[in-house]
Design a protein around this nucleic acid. Structure first.
Length: 559
DNA sequence: GGAAACGGCGCG
DNA sequence: AAAGCGCGCCGTTTCC
């Protein structure tokens, strides 16, 4: 008997009126699925051959599948792709009755809400897919854009999977750090070591009532004690010699740990040995992921030791050395900069080229070049880089100029920066008026430079994000091909889809943490490197750039 | 009385 | 009050 779905390379998923799930191969068969049979049906299609699942949003459609133990290989996330295409193909007609930009909803809409236009409606899904196909067909570089849409969609799968699996988190170890550093909680819940430091500061400033948590009051108190400071931030305080400063800075470090990742954070975010942050793929304009809740992107180094593998499992931690400058060298086809990077620390290579004297200078100069530094050490060093690597610098300088002039810029795969907002155009127009004042012109210049620094960085940060997506997209497929461990070796907290296999547990811009059965740790390290090389080839072909990883295998993510 | 802005600091 | 990009989160202050 022939399978009517056998030839479908894409299968769209949506809902019919009444909320029933319907699958459709574009232009062909449809099938209505009861909620109970949905995961198994998807799994059966996956087992036959790779399919690209087209759905409104992986963030809403994928978690129930994962909860049922079903993974998919590929998808097309219409919501994320809509956002990319809107900016990247300005002439495209992506107009629709429904809001394709709306954020994912925490819970599926209740049945009575289904009357309103919904992006989950199967007919709308198919219409949106057709609109996106048409938009892609008119794009200037459809091949690269297609890669970007695939990478973005794969990222959405990774985000859902990483949340489902969770970050292995040793709450006892974390609590132990809190006890050691902050001390036991005393009256009012204030940890003893913080109370002691606060008392030292109050004595040193001779201000017995002072509250250290109020910057304005603290500032007044510091100045009353004769300290010449304009803020209470640590970069300014640490320059000053005064008995109040050391305990104050330590108090600030402790307060930060307490409020950001203290006992309350543990209660709120760690359950059953897993930290489950909420990732927001495509949440940053440049294409980086953002996070919502849990502070996934700010886990302090201090707590890395709590990121701990289950018994019999290992943490395989990999990060890319100098991702952004490597990406810049490749996308600008700057062979001299690529040579400085090849097979070694890029900053060492810059020093060897003679552009600067020390690795520290190289780092400051390279970061300054990508961020648009104009003053200080960094601003002073950038011109040397401009002489040594004219092609790379021309790319970022050009991106900055385009932004200053009100234009848009694009990453290597075509993610395009948003057009300047109304405020920007108003300020620029004001400065061009016949009666413009010097202040108008100054304001216009400053806002133009602000936008220029943004577009300068956009092309590099955004292309680095694309590389990272390509890296993870390839990696998750390699990990899925590793064998499953015996049931008694499972890590049940990672959920039915990942309990018996190596899986991505955490991602942070240029770093991936894999939770792996111990006997697979070496294979995972190998897969991480292979995927990095594959991502480099996918984006930059044979251009001679490499993306070396620092990989460590251990029981925790601490160095 | 609650929302928005601010200062500060963690991450890349 | 960082210089020089992109974020999220906390507690406090300010505004409506």
């Amino acid at each position: 008997m022939s399978d009517p779905w056998g030839d479908a390379s894409r299968i769209a998923l949506g809902r019919a009126s009444g909320g029933r799930i319907v699958a459709a191969a574009p232009g062909a068969v449809r099938r209505t699925l009861a909620a109970a049979e949905f995961p198994a049906w998807v799994a059966a299609r996956e087992a036959e051959r790779p399919v690209r699942w087209v759905w409104a949003s992986a963030g809403e459609w994928y978690p129930p599948l994962l909860a049922a133990g079903v993974r998919v290989e590929r998808c097309h996330d219409l919501r994320l792709c809509h956002a990319i295409l809107t900016n990247a193909v300005p002439g495209a007609d992506l107009a629709s009755d429904v809001d394709w930009f709306a954020a994912d909803e925490e819970h599926a809409p209740a049945l009575f809400e289904l009357d309103r236009p919904s992006r989950d409606d199967l007919d709308e899904v198919l219409r949106e897919l057709a609109r996106q196909d048409a938009a892609l067909a008119t794009a200037r570089d459809a091949g690269r854009l297609r890669l970007l849409l695939a990478a973005e969609s794969a990222g959405a799968l990774v985000a859902a999977e990483a949340r489902a699996a969770g970050v292995p988190w040793d709450a006892d170890h974390h609590a132990g750090i809190l006890d050691d550093v902050l001390g036991p909680r005393g009256a009012g819940g204030v940890p003893r070591n913080m109370a002691r430091l606060a008392e030292e500061v109050r004595e040193a400033l001779e201000d017995p009532q002072l509250s250290l948590d109020s910057p304005p009051r603290l500032l007044r108190s510091l100045r009353a004690a004769g300290l010449q400071v304009s803020s209470t931030s640590k970069w300014e305080l640490q320059e000053i010699a005064h008995p109040a400063i050391m305990p104050l800075l330590e108090y600030k470090r402790f307060a930060r740990l307490l409020t950001a990742n203290g006992w309350a954070w543990l209660d709120a975010w760690v359950r059953g040995g897993r930290f489950r942050p909420i990732y927001v793929p495509g949440g940053v304009v440049t294409g980086r992921w953002a996070a919502a809740g849990g502070g996934a992107l700010q886990i302090p180094r201090q707590l890395r030791g709590a990121l701990r593998a289950d018994p019999g499992w290992r943490i395989v931690d990999a990060d890319v050395a100098q991702l952004e400058p490597r990406v810049l060298a490749a996308m600008s086809r700057d062979e001299r900069m690529a040579r400085a990077a090849l097979g070694r620390d890029l900053y060492d290579g810059v020093v060897e080229s003679g552009a600067v004297q020390t690795r520290d200078e190289a780092k400051i100069a390279v970061l300054g070049a990508m961020y648009g530094a104009t003053t200080g050490d960094s601003g002073r060093l950038v011109p040397r880089l401009r002489r040594a690597y004219p092609r790379a610098m021309a790319l970022v300088d050009g991106a900055a100029r385009t932004g200053e002039e009100g234009g848009t810029v694009a990453t290597w795969l075509g993610r395009t920066s948003p057009a300047p907002d109304e405020e920007f155009r108003r300020i620029q127009a004001r400065a061009s008026a016949a009666d413009a004042t010097a202040a108008d012109e100054q304001r216009a210049q400053r806002s133009a430079r602000d936008v220029g620094r943004f577009t300068r960085n956009f092309v590099v940060q955004g292309t680095a994000a694309e590389w990272a997506l390509a890296w993870m997209a390839d990696l998750r497929l390699r990990l899925a091909r590793l064998p499953a461990v015996a049931p008694e070796r499972a890590a049940p907290a990672s959920g039915p889809a990942f309990a018996r296999r190596a899986h991505i547990a955490f991602f942070l811009h240029d770093e991936v943490v894999v939770h792996a059965p111990e006997e697979h740790a070496d294979a995972v390290a190998h897969a991480l490197r292979e995927s990095a090389a594959a991502a480099g080839r996918l984006l930059f072909g044979s251009f001679p750039i490499d993306f070396p990883l620092d990989v460590s295998i251990g029981e925790s993510a601490a160095e």
